[in-house]
Design a protein around this nucleic acid. Structure first.
Length: 559
RNA sequence: UGACCUAUGGUGUAAUGGUAGCACUCCGGUUUUUGGUAUCGUCAGUCAAGGUUCGAGUCCUUGUAGGUCAACCA
């Protein structure tokens, strides 16, 4: 047992401090609060792993609360997708809740605010109010409606609620301080009129509470001890505290908001708005396009939940802006799949090999190890015959000593099969090799134990028997953007950096054992990379997505 | 011309006044029936200047750089 002490991140340190200062451990409670207006991405995964991870380490409940206060943008489709993604990531929430569950309570509190002179109805235009709001360096000025009587406020607010006013004509504002240095404290809007159908409350309401007014009170209602969000909400904290303090009963727990830096990944974008744009403009095929950094995209690409959790854990959390190298994510999936993915042979760019001294109609069923990293993975059968495909790049008529693959007059090992020697090749009018004629060493069968089978040959190639191979569509993905931080260039639109070669569709040949592969099954195509069965697969057509290529030190040598 | 936040190898993070560590990337060696994996190793860092202290990445001051804040969005 290694007793290495894991260092705490700054959120855990805050919790430890609170515990040390008397917060009972059983009062610990967290929440993950997505707005159902888009799909979850790898950045959200950081937050999910943080919050649910805290729940696990402290044995505390974690609520899933949909922040659904804006019916103009939110949809049930997103709610369903978000729930699926969180479950797929392997986390269980305590209660499934909605901010809209608290609309009545929020409304009742708003009435109290009005009665206590802490809120008023304003019927100026948004432009007027914006002007009065001031700037970060100049004070705001009071609204002419700031000192309406309580009776008038109550009357107007009830009329807002009953639908007597048009959208945009009236708002309820908290009466705080128009001269506050924090702009969020300059009489923020609590309610606006929105005559929209809500995915849960239907047409019950035509006034909807704003985020700030809703979020802290929701945390308070649920008795969330630590409300963790991203850095851009830091300046909202004053307002969060102010709202909670107005209703806070000292017998109850007062939630605490703390902020961490959102996780950015190189060569992609993380804002929901931009991801939506990629979807709507059909730059990608959908939210789950395997090139998207969404959870659903990564899943379809072949990423495991485990690899995403490991990534979030390894990347850690802090308060500084960051762009994490996508190589770390790729390392996490390769590490996971190396241990778990069955090995299989597939040829993506085929050239025909004829083994001239192999009997014409002979077929052999060879045995292949499924995964040498996993002794329980077992073996499978792979058919062999006189004509096979190998990769074009695995043959050269002549090459220097660093080329371990097939070349005229030299031998290579066919993985799980025989040692072959290239004797000659046939080329078309363009000089392209179309056929390679080889001889095989009959005694060299892999695993046969014969003297010849133990001969050391430098190169080993993967292959498929032409007669037995299945055709498959293979989608070879590359990064979606050519720039490390596509949305960091102030004078350029992120779409200028779209990689035109982010998808390459190939017709490949795969070994017949793959015919039963099902959606989301993951394999290592030996010597090539990890591949995952796509949902477009049908009974007649196999489709694979390339998750990530294997490390290729040959290519790195500049070959 | 304000308030707040943040500055540690190329990247992401640790060190809570006491030996600057880990992971990824890169590069090199060994092993290998995957040019994979594994394994060993190399290079590489405290934004700057002052101050406090026996001792500062850590505390203080002043700079510098980056970020956030002025939606009836969240």
């Amino acid at each position: 047992m290694s007793e290495e002490k894991k260092s705490l991140n700054f959120i855990e340190q805050i919790i430890e401090e609170d515990l040390a200062n008397g917060l009972p451990k059983e009062k610990l409670r967290f929440r993950f609060p997505p707005e159902p207006n888009g799909y979850l991405h790898i950045g959200h995964a950081a937050s999910i792993c943080l919050n649910f991870g805290l729940g696990l380490t402290y044995n505390a409940p974690v609520n899933l609360r949909f922040d659904d206060t804006n019916p103009a943008k939110e949809e049930q489709e997103y709610v369903d997708a978000i729930k699926h993604d969180i479950q797929w990531l392997g986390f269980k929430w305590d209660k499934e809740l909605y901010s809209s569950d608290y609309f009545q309570q929020l409304f009742d509190w708003a009435i109290e605010f009005i009665k206590e002179g802490k809120a008023y109805v304003d019927n100026q235009s948004s432009e007027e109010m914006a002007k009065q709001k001031g700037t970060p360096t100049e004070h705001g000025t009071d609204s002419p409606n700031r000192n309406r009587s309580i009776e008038e406020n109550l009357d107007l607010f009830m009329k807002m609620k009953s639908g007597e006013f048009n959208e945009g004509s009236h708002v309820l504002r908290a009466k705080i301080d128009m001269k506050h240095v924090n702009m969020h404290m300059r009489d923020p809007i609590m309610y606006r009129i929105l005559k929209k159908h809500h995915h849960r409350t239907g047409d019950d309401w035509c006034i909807y509470p704003m985020y700030d007014w809703t979020h802290g009170e929701s945390d308070y209602i649920e008795q969330i001890s630590h409300s963790i969000c991203t850095l851009e909400f830091k300046s909202h904290r004053d307002l969060y505290d102010w709202y909670v303090d107005q209703v806070y009963d000292t017998n109850l727990l007062r939630p605490k908001q703390r902020e961490f830096a959102r996780r950015n990944l190189s060569y992609t974008v993380m804002s929901k708005r931009k991801l939506l744009q990629l979807v709507e403009e059909k730059i990608v095929t959908g939210w789950d396009d395997p090139r998207m950094p969404t959870i659903s995209g990564l899943r379809r690409r072949g990423y495991t939940a485990n690899s995403i959790r490991t990534f979030s854990e390894t990347a850690g959390i802090s308060k500084r802006d960051n762009v994490t190298d996508v190589a770390l994510l790729e390392h996490c999936i390769k590490d996971d799949l190396n241990k778990t993915a069955p090995r299989v042979m597939a040829v993506l760019d085929p050239v025909k090999v004829i083994i001239t001294n192999y009997p014409e109609d002979k077929e052999e069923i060879l045995t292949a190890e499924n995964n040498q990293e996993d002794e329980n993975a077992g073996f499978r059968e792979v058919p062999f015959s006189k004509e096979i495909y190998i990769e074009k790049e695995d043959f050269r008529e002549e090459a220097n000593k660093k080329f371990f693959r097939l070349k005229l007059g030299k031998e290579v090992r066919l993985k799980n099969a025989y040692i072959i020697k290239a004797e000659s090749c046939i080329k078309d009018e363009n000089g392209e090799v179309t056929e390679i004629h080889c001889t095989y060493d009959e005694d060299s069968l892999s695993g046969s134990g014969s003297e010849a089978s133990k001969r050391r040959v430098k190169g080993t190639l993967h292959w498929v028997s032409i007669k037995h191979a299945r055709k498959a569509e293979v989608r070879v993905y590359d990064r979606l953007f050519t720039h490390e931080a596509p949305d960091s260039q102030k004078d350029k639109d992120f779409k200028e950096f779209i990689n035109p070669d982010s998808l390459n569709v190939i017709e490949a040949f795969v070994e017949p054992s793959l015919k039963t592969a099902k959606n989301l099954d993951r394999f290592q195509f030996q010597r090539l990379g990890y591949f995952c069965v796509d949902k477009d697969t049908t009974a007649n057509k196999l489709v694979f997505n390339r998750t990530v290529p294997l490390r290729d030190s040959w290519a790195k040598m500049g070959q």
